[in-house]
Design a binder for these strands. Sequence first.
DNA 1: TTGTATGCGTTATCAA
DNA 2: TTGATAACGCATACAA
Lengths: 333, 333
Amino acid sequence: MRPTIKDVAKQSGVSVATVSRIVNGLPGYSPETRKKVMRVIEELGYKPNAVARNLVSRKTSTIGVLLPQLSSHFAAKLLQGIEDEAHTRRYSVVICNTDSNGKRTQDYLELLREKQVEGILFASELLTEEYAGTLQGFGIPAAVIATTSHVPSIPFIKVDDEAASYSAVQFLIKKGHQRIGMISGTKHDPISGTPRINGLKKAFIENGIPFEEGLIEYGDFGFKSGYEAMKRLYQKNPEMTAVFAASDEMALGILSFCYEKGMKVPEELSVIGYDDTDIATMSIPPLTTVHQPIQEMGTEAVRMLMKMIDGNQPESKLMSYRITERASVKNLT
Amino acid sequence: MRPTIKDVAKQSGVSVATVSRIVNGLPGYSPETRKKVMRVIEELGYKPNAVARNLVSRKTSTIGVLLPQLSSHFAAKLLQGIEDEAHTRRYSVVICNTDSNGKRTQDYLELLREKQVEGILFASELLTEEYAGTLQGFGIPAAVIATTSHVPSIPFIKVDDEAASYSAVQFLIKKGHQRIGMISGTKHDPISGTPRINGLKKAFIENGIPFEEGLIEYGDFGFKSGYEAMKRLYQKNPEMTAVFAASDEMALGILSFCYEKGMKVPEELSVIGYDDTDIATMSIPPLTTVHQPIQEMGTEAVRMLMKMIDGNQPESKLMSYRITERASVKNLT
DNA sequence: TTGTATGCGTTATCAA
DNA sequence: TTGATAACGCATACAA
């Protein structure tokens, strides 16, 4: 049995109140009793029970994070940012892998509430009406990352996907490319799908480049899907000089496809990715890509949550993006 | 203010004991009162407070995981396995990024104890005497992953690094390679460093291949370090036909180096990695590597922890490895 | 079938 | 400078 504050009190011949004061650094005891009590604490190896503390203080110093997948590079980087910032604020973070499953998500939400977490972060997935509803019902501060929210009480942290996509295509065009293909993420994905396609269309229009549906193929953001989508895209548009992928993983899929076909990148085909995760550095050739400050998005999300916990209502935040130029895009001009 | 069990009791005109029984599915009430109480619970949106429950039950249904870094592929995969298994057992997991920092690690350990977690997982880092000591002092079930433990009460889950490394080199030799170089991880790392080097030496000896220190260069398991180490290694041993990297990331570093030098892999140089993380699939050419069942190691670790929580003392477990053959090793025979 | 009372380990209020 | 004691929200032994 672990020693409790009572044991310490009894051992040192004082009341629990005094021990509590000493442990918490509050005033109200003589130096001698402090010394005496400290010794007993040392001897017994007493440590306060956070559960009991949490019960009376009604605070748990912990937040929950919901992610559709833990094993992605994106999630890993995000978690790093979240945990870092949470730790400096002395908060713990419990992770929840929703597996993009509605039931599972709802269960986690319930669980987090019962565990009395002080804030909830929801990442990389569409915040449905339902989720938003239960979240609001909880009255627990919440924010979403890399996705949007139409609920004012639940701010979002993301980059402007359309603008980022637009600038990626604009980058390609400035390099002299005209026949540009795209490998989008999941079709009709309102967060990372459609907006990025719209960015491409906008760049096309501004530059007088005709758009056709055939210039787009769809994947699921993963490597293999990128490879497969590229196979289809290439068949339809063998004359392309560049392709824009909605994720780095898919971009690497393109690279592998080209390697198999004996197509040199960037000499024969330029490719630009999206995310700028670690793999963009490790590919051959190194990948030019749209940089998203993933880790910072994590820390920023925690900061917002903290503000909310402190009773303020922060505004949603669009993070800045930029093109990180490496070696997968050729200058045609 | 969230409704408590008292509110429900008052509203429905019964005692808290009855409400408690109903909420917990225990016997001891009529169908009518149950119905009545359930309605009130519904109306009020009552949810039990897990903190209070934990206090009386002395259980928290949560475990803590300590990792030296969250943003690595290895960590991500491991977490996926851990969270998955924990979730099926209805346990929550709180993550701790130690940053390979002793002070920070100790702080986390203290924190987890105060939060009354029921088990602690410690991954990818040397379990020092000190850590082992405080862990034992806690009396909380603990296990280590991808590292060893000499403390019987703290079992480990890992693969036999020396044997795995031996088989990787053996694989190379069977393919006709004789001049084999190695890029090891951190020098003197007793877990993933030395044992893997020993595996190589053993294979060399068994096959009558002379070993020289110059055949080994050291990195830190990361991409860039692999690239740099390869640069040094190649300078010393331009006649090598194959190199074995102690991590996939370093192997990709080698690939990038070769690409820059215009050396074809595997035609001019074969390379084999270690880990078999996702990137091994995405490289050019796809990487032949030593497969470690990372995710399974996570689930297995949780299973062991659960056994310990149930009062049993499980044995340490060596997970199986195998060579996943892709396209980065050429057959010279 | 139901209610009362006690305790879980703390914090905090109020007296002394 | 100290110590009782009442919460915190719930579970449970014991009575009724």
